[in-house]
Design a protein around this nucleic acid. Structure first.
Length: 276
DNA sequence: AAGATAGCCAACCGCCACATT
DNA sequence: GAATGTGGCGGTTGGCTATCT
């Protein structure tokens, strides 16, 4: 496969050249030279607008590629190497609470990136847990969706659509499918973004819609999970304090949970309170 | 030794929320 | 309010490597 592809996204045009001209953007594995250029650029300018980085660094890469490379590989704070047992344990427990919110989970693991955690989960931990999960699923009272799944609602058909998505599509008119899926998923997840007044309102609306569109059994399960989340902040603090020394979590890890001076956990709890 | 298969992981893609124009 | 730009996220892909037959 050629390392060059025609970028068809509008963002790729704008970030690479002032005029929206179709051009080739390099893709695929990064070379040492590219790494060096990107590193030097970040060292010199700091993390400025990612859209400017390719130009500043002299890289023929899109902004997303640069950002990803930095965040997942070049950032000196990244810890490489084997996951330790306590990290395994923490990931498993956090995943139980948060689902596939990899960035949040990674935020509690100093030096680990969301991509690392996700890959590690998919290749190691999920397999480890399959036998346990089967046991749980065998019990009808705790069956399947004890919590709504995080967003995964593209109209695009997939080969492996799980039962839940099928049910959902039956409940929701085709036209509203995409939006409605988000509505169902949203209140169950910590919102990593700033919580504006509009956002709060929309969460409230989401709640209403959720109760309209969800089958009663699911609603009951939702309620169970919300109860479960009642002490989530406390639980996670206990989890991380027990596993990761606090001085480690203060710096890198905690940064991941802060946005514009607002703790994501506070938003998370706020959203949970809204939805209960 | 060689081909097939499985596992890992870096990178890409599509989507979304928010900010700005 | 609509259009556009941007940053960020989770899911998925594809290439490389290790292991198996």
């Amino acid at each position: 496969m050629s390392p060059f592809r025609v970028s068809a996204t509008s963002s790729s045009f704008s970030q690479m050249s002032p005029s929206p001209v179709l051009r080739l953007v390099r893709k695929g594995a990064w070379t040492q030279v590219e790494d060096d250029l990107l590193k030097r650029c970040i060292e010199r300018h700091g993390v400025v607008r990612w859209s400017r980085v390719p130009q500043l660094a002299g890289l023929n890469r899109c902004r997303k590629s640069c950002r990803l490379r930095w965040l997942n590989y070049l950032d000196p704070r990244i810890r490489r190497g084997q996951f330790e047992e306590d990290e395994d344990d923490l990931i498993i427990r956090l995943h139980k609470l948060l689902g596939n919110r990899w960035s949040l989970i990674a935020g509690r693991l100093p030096g680990r990136t969301a991509n690392d955690v996700k890959n590690y989960w998919n290749s190691h931990l999920s397999k480890k847990l399959i036998p346990q999960e089967k046991k749980v699923r065998a019990c009808p009272c705790i069956a399947a969706p004890t919590r709504p799944q995080p967003r995964k609602c593209s109209i695009k058909t997939k080969t492996s659509v799980d039962d839940q998505q099928v049910n959902m599509s039956e409940l929701i008119p085709q036209k509203k499918k995409v939006r409605a899926c988000r509505i169902i998923a949203a209140p169950t997840r910590p919102q990593p973004r700033k919580c504006s007044i509009e956002t709060k309102t929309s969460v409230d609306e989401q709640q209403v819609n959720m109760s309209e569109s969800r089958p009663s059994a699911d609603t009951a399960n939702c309620a169970v999970w919300q109860d479960d989340l009642g002490n989530v902040k406390e639980m996670i603090e206990q989890l991380t304090e027990a596993t990761i020394p606090s001085e480690n979590t203060e710096g890198f890890a905690h940064e991941g949970l802060m946005q514009d001076g607002v703790s994501l956990w506070d938003n998370f709890i706020f959203d949970i309170q809204l939805s209960s």
